[in-house]
């Protein structure tokens, strides 16, 4: 499992000619690839693009999936089951099938080559809504009632009581969504033409020319691209552990 990652790392320190020799340690380690990526390519811009989109869409997912999941779990209203089933059924549709409708939508509304165009399919997810609903179902109704009696509005209760108590679920969802978004390739590729709007995966793919691939460059970019995901993971993992401790205290 770790071998491809080691090769990725080692290749990033190799020079062009050496790429196809399968040694782990480069004979002449070099930083030219890194200098190229960081200096001459648009990698920094792509990173910024990726970060903006992944962070915004992760927050959006936490907010909307949390809100809808809570509503489905804790309010009874007519049509609740139907809404829930409708959301669940979106999980059964593969992304590939949605790309054409998304594209047509984006063209109609002028979203091609915009951040919004790249991000909109991921602003809310059926999976996250389902996950949050399941967690909120376990939240005791008495807590919500107590907060109502304490004088808080329904939205404030969601924000101040319900959401903090499902932080482990939110963290897990955030990790999944962030990573999924960070590595998303097909849709950003389709919706963007302007290299200034590429996300990292699309940008990296663009190093693969039609006739020739600069693997050492691709690998270097990939190495750099994993760094933010590591940070996100380390940062959010703390919340998962803390949340589990809190869950143990409940009741």
């Amino acid at each position: 499992m770790i071998t491809p990652i080691l090769f990725m790392l080692s290749t990033s320190f190799k020079e062009g000619a050496e790429v196809y020799s399968l040694t782990i340690f480069p004979e002449k380690p070099t930083l030219v690839n890194y200098l190229f990526i960081l200096g001459e390519s648009k990698f920094i811009i792509w990173t910024v693009n990726s970060l903006i989109i992944a962070v915004l869409s992760t927050f959006s997912v936490l907010f909307f999936d949390g809100l809808v999941g809570y509503t489905l779990a804790k309010f009874s209203f007519r049509g609740r089951e139907i809404v829930f089933i409708a959301i669940l059924s979106t999980l059964m549709i593969p992304t590939e099938m949605l790309i054409i409708p998304w594209y047509m939508m984006s063209r109609t509304f002028g979203w091609l080559d915009t951040y919004w165009g790249i991000a909109f399919p991921g602003l809310m997810t059926g999976f996250g809504t389902f996950l949050m609903r399941q967690f909120f179902m376990n939240l005791p109704d008495e807590l919500i009632d107590a907060a109502r009696m304490d004088g808080w509005s329904e939205f404030a209760i969601w924000l101040r009581i319900a959401m903090p108590l499902v932080i482990p679920a939110l963290s897990a969802l955030a990790i999944f969504h962030f990573l999924g978004n960070w590595t998303a390739f097909i849709w950003p590729l389709i919706v963007t033409n302007d290299p200034d709007l590429y996300t990292i995966p699309v940008g990296i793919a663009s190093f693969n020319g039609e006739f020739q691939s600069d693997w050492e460059i691709v690998m270097t970019a990939s190495c750099l691209a994993t760094i933010p995901t590591l940070f996100v993971f380390i940062f959010l993992q703390k919340f998962i552990i803390k949340g589990i401790m809190l869950a143990g205290l409940k009741g």
Partner: peptide, 20 residues
């Protein structure tokens, strides 16, 4: 009237303290 506007306080069987 919504519970929050009734100015009533309630104590629940399981106390319903906010765990966090």
């Amino acid at each position: 009237v919504h519970p929050k506007d009734r100015d009533i306080a309630m104590v629940f069987q399981n106390y319903a303290l906010y765990p966090h």
